[in-house]
Amino acid sequence: MRVEQISIFLENKAGRLAEVTAILRDANVNIRALSLADTTDFGILRLIVNDNNAAEQALKKEGFTVGKTNVLAIEVADVPGGLNNVLDPLTSAGINVEYMYAFANTKGQNAIMIFRFHDLDKAISILKDNGIKVIKGEDVYNL
């Protein structure tokens, strides 16, 4: 159920993001989804890619600090209230969303969103109980 996300520490410097994307291009890695969280001094780039190992190795080789985290890819109905339907049961169970971002998906009818929870197992069981679809890792990498 889990999707592996890689994250990269970036200083706020012009051209730094482009360096990352160039490294990934040269390693023949395709970016499936991404989000950039930033502060005044630094940022964290989070990525879902089609080949985690290739991406991690290429980035580490160039001296980047690379982390790995498990996140969930959740299908969200593309209608008003779709996201709210996902969040409501989690909120009532006291599960906090650390961060989330959207996934570019041109194939399905529904939107796909990436969620980071501290308690992944609990989140998965609640989502299941509420009939919300959590997408498998291998499906996400190859969407």
Binding site: A37, T39, I44, T65, V66, G67, T69, R116
Partner: peptide
């Protein structure tokens, strides 16, 4: 320097 051990994917942890 933010090394492998220090790093987190969450801004608040680093802050």
């Amino acid at each position: 320097e933010v090394g492998q051990e220090f790093f987190s994917d969450e801004i608040k942890t680093l802050q």
